[in-house]
């Protein structure tokens, strides 16, 4: 399956900006589940410097400067991505009791587990408390198979939490999300990560896109698709297994991964430093086209 994704970010400033320097994580990652075939970043005004590098977590970061005075900045990333069907081959790994995974991560002896062990550590957006650990342990019962336990956790988050746009902002603490049981995909992913990490498992944050369909009888609107977020669990010998608690599914061919990290802070799609500018407003539009 191939998709073309157009992700447009628009900043409007109250005062002119003389110079801005940016880092964008807007190029979909390439891994065993997907391949980014082509990618392009277009800005208005145009850049005078554009380079990219691969960060610690494997994401491509575009670095660019905009030297022209402007009041509106538009950054558009257009990528073509091919998604492979996720074959659920290594059922043996899936059956591993979760406690033995915790054990392996606590004393990493292979480079892979050492890398994964980093994702057991608490991060700014995934601070957990005793209640979250209790919540996690209800799914992670003794000796339960790791993937099955995690599916259960995902299902419980899906049913216990209410999706409510605007109920939270990025700075809402996780404890508050847990108390109100309301939030958006980002909160659910962070909450699930806090649960996993509270019991010593490795979880990573995944930002990406999900294809949406217009209500029946209506035409799909340009820019109506959305940025999305979910989480992945580390399973030895298998690798990272994705879970989408917002939709209670194991992502397959409708989820496109943009970037991965310990939490949202590692995958911020666009960050920058501006000289001037005053107040700003932000608008994001995503458009996903399935190639027939």
């Amino acid at each position: 399956m191939k998709y073309t994704i157009k992700h447009t970010t628009t900043y409007s400033y109250s005062e002119p900006v003389n110079l801005c320097q940016n880092h964008a994580r807007l190029t979909p990652i390439s891994n065993q589940y997907q391949q980014c075939l082509t990618t392009e970043i277009v800005t208005s005004p145009t850049v005078d410097y554009l380079q990219s590098f691969i960060d610690y977590f494997g994401n491509r970061v575009s670095v660019f400067d905009i030297p022209t005075q402007h009041e509106v900045l538009q950054v558009t990333a257009i990528s073509e991505v091919e998604i492979y069907n996720r074959q659920q081959i290594n059922m043996l790994g899936w059956q591993m009791p979760w406690e033995s995974v915790v054990q392996a991560l606590a004393n990493p002896i292979t480079p892979q587990t050492l890398k994964a062990a980093e994702f057991t550590l608490v991060s700014a957006f995934t601070r957990y408390q005793a209640e979250m650990k209790d919540y996690a342990l209800q799914s992670f019962t003794p000796n339960r198979a790791i993937v099955e336990a995690c599916e259960d956790l995902m299902a419980r988050i899906f049913s216990d939490f209410q999706y409510e746009s605007g109920a939270t902002t990025i700075s809402t603490p996780l404890a508050e999300v847990f108390a109100s049981k309301k939030g958006v995909c980002q909160d659910f992913a962070h909450f699930a990560l806090a649960c996993l990490r509270s019991i010593g498992l490795a979880g990573r944050y995944v930002s990406g896109y999900i294809e949406t369909f217009p209500p029946e009888g209506q035409e799909k609107l340009e820019g109506a698709d959305a940025t999305h977020a979910w989480f992945a669990l580390y399973v030895p010998d298998v690798g990272w297994v994705d879970f989408d608690p917002t939709n209670n599914v194991l992502p397959n061919d409708q989820h496109i991964t943009l970037a991965v990290g310990r939490d949202f802070a590692d995958v911020t799609p666009l960050k920058g430093i501006v000289f001037g500018g005053g107040m700003h407003q932000l608008a994001v539009a995503v458009d996903m086209k399935r190639h027939e």
Binding site: Y11, T227, A265, L270, K271, I273, F275, L282, V284
Partner: peptide, 17 residues
Amino acid sequence: TKTATPLNSMFGSIDKS
């Protein structure tokens, strides 16, 4: 010599899911 301010898309970038 004036200083810069940080800007990031943390706020409001995920408007829907």
